[in-house]
Simulated scan of single mutants.
Amino acid sequence: MSPQTTPITDTPQDIDLVGRLIAPDGSRLPHPELDRHVADVDAAQLRDLHRDMVVLRRIDAEGFALQRQGQLGLWAPCQGQEAAQIGTARSLAPQDFVFPSYRETGVIYARGAEPADFVRTWRGEEGAAYDPDRLRCAPMQIIIGAQSLHAVGYAMGIQRDGTDEVSVAYFGDGATSQGDVSEAMVFASSYAAPVVFVCQNNHWAISEPVAVQSRYPIAGRAPAFGIPSMRVDGNDVLACLAAMRWALDHARSGKGPVFIEAVTYRMGPHTTADDPTRYRDPAELEAWRTRDPIARLEAFLMARGELDEAQIDAARSDADQAARAMRAACIGLVTRKPLAVFDGVYAEPHTGIERERDAYAAYLRSFDEEA
């Protein structure tokens, strides 16, 4: 699919020009490239995707609340991006390996995260994240765009091992302005690595609008590296599912890397340390509310008699249960003693570590003396 090559702005009308299967009003739209990749998707599968998005939104809201209540140091909200994350992640095969940024809560949820896995990093507890091997997902990356290089390196390892895997890198529109992403695409293209780049263009890199970062659609950059790209409506979960299936088929069949730009919108702040009211027009936010990914799928299914209020209530009940489990896991985490940070650094005793331990112990004692 050829990427758009006309200048863009930062208005919701931009996504009228991308691949879409379900319109904001819930009507079904034909698409010659995307349709064939979701021909097998039935109402039951769509209800599962709806439930996933409802649960994810509730988990995200609970994470925000936990941070505000002092239980987490930080939280990176993903409200509004549920379709982009769930649609792409639910397309993955069990053996595929994901390299996420700090905002991909929905991706780790889809990969089987346990309640504590959502909060351990943001609480700063031992273990820092989750078991990457169990989830087939690297720890969330804070350094903007760095995971794109990790994903390509892993994909080159897949080539040498001869396994049936695909490596996937998730990042935002702001990351595409980092050199790491360009370097990753150079290596991926040069070595035909089986990697999928998923850019969630949520229109804001902290306070920087995408129109300032790029005058043309981000998907248009990939072909310059020899990488085919597709630009899809990131608030349409069915289109995201189809695009990711297309990309995975391409990469898994030995044809090399692929790039997806999922055009969506970050409804909340960049993180809980951000105040978007200082840089974002409230009218823009309201315009994007009309394109809500969950409401869109509900309208589509309800118009066909495939979803009713009882099923929606059941999804919300599941979401509340997930949030309660996450909260309990967060509050139940046991923080190690401060000096334990020096344990296990070396297999044998080390004088340098001992000096640092003693210095830190003295620093901690100074607070007791002040009291």
Score class of each variant (00 low, 15 high):
368 D>K: 08
120 R>E: 03
364 L>M: 01
263 V>R: 11
43 A>K: 09
173 D>R: 04
39 A>M: 04
223 P>M: 00
310 A>F: 09
145 G>M: 11
1 M>A: 13
85 Q>A: 04
308 D>P: 13
31 H>D: 15
72 L>S: 08
41 V>I: 12
345 V>D: 06
34 L>F: 06
164 D>G: 09
124 G>A: 05
251 A>G: 10
30 P>G: 04
257 P>H: 03
144 I>T: 14
348 E>P: 08
185 M>T: 01
365 R>M: 15
27 S>W: 13
48 D>R: 13
144 I>Y: 04
154 Y>S: 14
237 V>D: 11
290 T>D: 04
114 E>D: 14
145 G>F: 07
16 D>C: 06
42 D>R: 12
343 D>R: 07
191 Y>E: 09
126 E>M: 11
93 A>C: 07
371 A>P: 01
134 R>A: 13
282 P>R: 09
90 R>P: 01
285 L>H: 15
191 Y>I: 01
47 R>P: 05
318 D>Q: 11
45 Q>L: 02
138 A>E: 10
141 Q>F: 06
289 R>G: 04
244 M>F: 01
360 Y>T: 13
236 D>P: 08
256 G>R: 01
327 R>C: 10
155 A>R: 00
101 S>I: 11
295 A>F: 15
356 E>D: 13
3 P>Y: 06
223 P>S: 07
228 P>I: 05
91 S>T: 14
176 T>L: 11
94 P>Q: 07
341 V>L: 13
324 R>T: 11
151 A>S: 00
70 G>I: 14
298 E>A: 12
175 A>K: 07
277 T>I: 06
256 G>P: 03
81 Q>H: 06
183 E>R: 07
285 L>S: 15
85 Q>G: 02
103 R>Q: 05
131 D>E: 10
21 L>G: 10
195 V>Y: 08
196 V>G: 03
357 R>N: 05
181 V>I: 00
241 L>M: 14
197 F>S: 07
140 M>T: 15
195 V>Q: 02
199 C>V: 05
51 R>M: 01
11 T>L: 14
350 H>T: 13
55 V>T: 14
205 A>T: 12
173 D>P: 00
110 A>V: 09
208 E>Y: 14
296 R>T: 02
153 G>Y: 03
366 S>K: 07
7 P>H: 11
327 R>E: 15
18 V>W: 14
274 D>F: 09
359 A>T: 15
335 T>M: 08
266 R>S: 06
168 V>R: 10
256 G>A: 03
361 A>H: 12
261 E>N: 11
91 S>M: 10
226 G>P: 06
365 R>W: 06
336 R>F: 01
326 M>S: 01
338 P>K: 06
321 Q>Y: 02
370 E>W: 15
112 G>P: 03
267 M>P: 00
237 V>R: 14
144 I>P: 06
238 L>E: 12
352 G>H: 04
